[in-house]
C-alpha cells in the first residue's frame, strides 16, 4: 500500500520566479513527478498561511511555497514577509507533526532544473512521510 501511495502536493508559486522557473523546466523538458499541482500567485507574500492550513485540512499531503531569492522580490519585500509568515505557521504545525508537510523554498526564474529537483525531492520526502492523517480523520 505504502509503495502505491501517490501524494498530492499543492504548490503556491510566485509569478515572477518559481512559476516562470516551472515554465522553464517544462520548455527545457526537465522531468518531475506529476504529483504536484501548481497554483500561480503574484508573489510568495500572497501565500496566506490560511491557504496552507486549508490545503492540509482538506487532505493535501504536502504544500510547497516557492518565492524569489531574498533581495530579488519583484515587489522588493514580499518574500521577506512570506518567510516570516510561513515560519510562524510551521512553528504552529510543528506542535501537531504537520510542519514537515510544508516547505518554503527560493527558486528563481532561471532555475528550471532546480525547480524539477525541488519537486522531485518534495514528492520523495512526502512519500516517506506517508499520507496526510487528516485525509482520513473526520474534521
Amino acid at each position: 500500500m505504502a509503495e502505491d501511495f501517490e501524494p498530492k502536493i499543492v504548490v503556491f508559486a510566485c509569478n515572477w520566479c518559481t512559476y516562470t522557473g516551472a515554465d522553464l523546466a517544462g520548455t527545457s523538458r526537465q522531468e518531475y513527478p506529476p504529483n504536484v499541482r501548481v497554483i500561480r500567485l503574484m508573489c510568495s507574500g500572497r501565500a496566506d498561511p490560511v491557504f496552507l492550513i486549508k490545503a492540509l485540512v482538506n487532505g493535501a499531503d504536502g504544500v510547497f511555497v516557492g518565492g524569489c531569492h531574498p533581495g530579488d522580490c519583484h515587489y522588493t519585500k514580499g518574500n521577506y514577509y512570506a518567510r516570516r509568515r510561513i515560519n510562524a505557521l510551521q512553528k504552529i504545525l510543528e506542535q501537531f507533526g504537520l510542519a514537515e508537510r510544508t516547505r518554503l523554498q527560493w527558486l528563481s526564474a532561471s532555475e528550471g532544473p532546480q525547480f524539477a529537483q525541488a519537486m522531485t525531492k518534495m514528492t520523495e520526502d512526502i512519500k516517506k512521510l506517508g499520507p496526510n492523517p487528516l485525509k482520513e480523520a473526520l474534521v
Partner: peptide, 25 residues
Amino acid sequence: GLRGSIKVPSDSLLFQLTRMYHDCF
C-alpha cells in the same frame, strides 16, 4: 462530495488552526 464524509459543524479544525495563526503574535 469531495471528501466523502465531514464533521458538522464543518471546519472546526480549520477554524482553530487559523485562529492560532492569527493570534499567535
